[in-house]
Amino acid sequence: MAAGGDHGSPDSYRSPLASRYASPEMCFVFSDRYKFRTWRQLWLWLAEAEQTLGLPITDEQIQEMKSNLENIDFKMAAEEEKRLRHDVMAHVHTFGHCCPKAAGIIHLGATSCYVGDNTDLIILRNALDLLLPKLARVISRLADFAKERASLPTLGFTHFQPAQLTTVGKRCCLWIQDLCMDLQNLKRVRDDLRFRGVKGTTGTQASFLQLFEGDDHKVEQLDKMVTEKAGFKRAFIITGQTYTRKVDIEVLSVLASLGASVHKICTDIRLLANLKEMEEPFEKQQIGSSAMPYKRNPMRSERCCSLARHLMTLVMDPLQTASVQWFERTLDDSANRRICLAEAFLTADTILNTLQNISEGLVVYPKVIERRIRQELPFMATENIIMAMVKAGGSRQDCHEKIRVLSQQAASVVKQEGGDNDLIERIQVDAYFSPIHSQLDHLLDPSSFTGRASQQVQRFLEEEVYPLLKPYESVMKVKAELCL
């Protein structure tokens, strides 16, 4: 049975990233139509530049190519590739079939990587351009969430054990800070992308030097003109047959890092959902379990974690691919890159769409948070109580021993009897502590235990987050809708 299948058929496997999760716009960027249309555009740009620099290419040939950029006979191309065992030459023939007058000058002087690699770089750039505003929107939604809850005390956790208090907004800023680093890295790697350009079979530009009869300047002009037509500021000066596969490492490393950030955020949300302090959106008709109707599973956060793990592992592909590119190139890269580049971007696209949807509907339960604080705060307040007693004339050592005994009794009630923490009640009825009984409410005010959390939130948002989001103001209103 021949390899390949009808990918629109229910009898043929289709990647869930495309069929179930990723956005239509990201799927289109990695589609065959987008790819092969870009090949034709690159052939047109090459012909236009070659004509401008004096090669015998007519206006009629150029116009014929322009008129057929979208006229792609995919069936013919597939048949040609089956016959020739070469995808680029299959599309040269297919393009030439609908451009008979231009057929002889299509791909003039070029090698397969002229269309293959340059198209990949265009796709990487455009895919990054799709991700950047999506990530900015996630940051914006979380920034709104953090600002609104900047002063809401909550129990902090280290080692997932109760620690000092923080605020809900401050905790959210930990998430935002990681995503801001990801946004900066995505922008950097996007701006650092260079075009492969017009380089020939081993990167020496020998074929173009021959076409222009040894004119170095025209060869350099050709490279520059096509690079500018493709919208790049610069091209690699040095290439082998391909652009260095280190570029793929750079791009997928940034995406993998984004995956790590999203995994951490969504894990926190899942843990908070278990504590009943916070939940992701839950639709009115949504079913959490087929057997347990009360369940409210954090399905979206779980999906993000599941896909983020996949995204983090994909960076190993370009690392290994770059390491086995012998001399000017081997074909070890080809099949692998067809999979890992598309999957990385479709996965990143999915987790950003999902995280935006989550961040637009996060639900906080202040009463649950308050109750958990009441359970733990008495123990945390013991040092403040000791200091207040010393100020009232008591002995630190005597007070410490009193607190120690009462704390152990209260802990026994919590752990052995399943009761509430009654340390404060014990202190309130103990005559030894009568000098500070009137101060206990103040000493137990949760806001006095959150330090500068709310001020940190305000400063972080104003100095770091809002300036970073400013270039994306025009796209901030787009909502994230999930079908599944």
Score class of each variant (00 low, 15 high):
P298I: 07
Q205K: 01
G418S: 06
V475S: 13
A22K: 08
S253L: 10
D422G: 06
H217N: 15
L258D: 01
H97W: 11
I424Q: 14
L183Q: 08
K82C: 09
N384R: 05
A146Q: 02
P162K: 00
E70H: 14
L319M: 07
K66P: 05
R426S: 09
H437P: 04
S474W: 15
V251D: 02
N297D: 01
N185E: 05
N126G: 12
S151T: 11
L222M: 08
G451F: 05
L155G: 01
V115N: 01
R245K: 09
D422E: 07
V368K: 08
F30N: 05
P100S: 10
I123C: 14
S395D: 14
K187C: 11
Q455C: 08
P298E: 00
A453V: 06
F208W: 01
T154P: 03
C399V: 11
C340R: 04
S438E: 07
A90W: 00
P10H: 15
I351K: 05
L132Q: 13
L135T: 12
A143F: 07
D182S: 04
F208G: 05
C340F: 13
L482N: 05
G240E: 01
H7Q: 14
L258V: 14
G288M: 04
W175Q: 11
D144L: 15
G156W: 01
T267D: 00
I123P: 02
L331H: 01
S434H: 11
L484N: 15
G451N: 00
A230G: 03
D120K: 12
I339E: 05
I238F: 00
N126V: 11
M312N: 03
L209Y: 11
A431D: 13
P16K: 12
L186G: 09
Q375Y: 07
F236K: 03
R137P: 11
E80M: 11
G54Q: 08
A3H: 15
S112R: 01
S261M: 01
M65K: 04
M26T: 05
A260I: 00
G288Q: 04
D317M: 07
P133D: 09
P471N: 15
R188H: 11
R190Q: 09
Q164Y: 02
L362G: 04
N68W: 07
S334L: 04
Q397D: 06
G288T: 03
Q320T: 12
E417T: 07
R426N: 09
L46M: 11
R309A: 05
A102Y: 00
K276A: 02
Q416S: 09
K224N: 08
I385L: 14
D191P: 00
L121C: 12
S359E: 08
E383Y: 06
S15I: 15
S23W: 07
M181D: 11
T204L: 02
P435H: 07
M65E: 01
V251F: 09
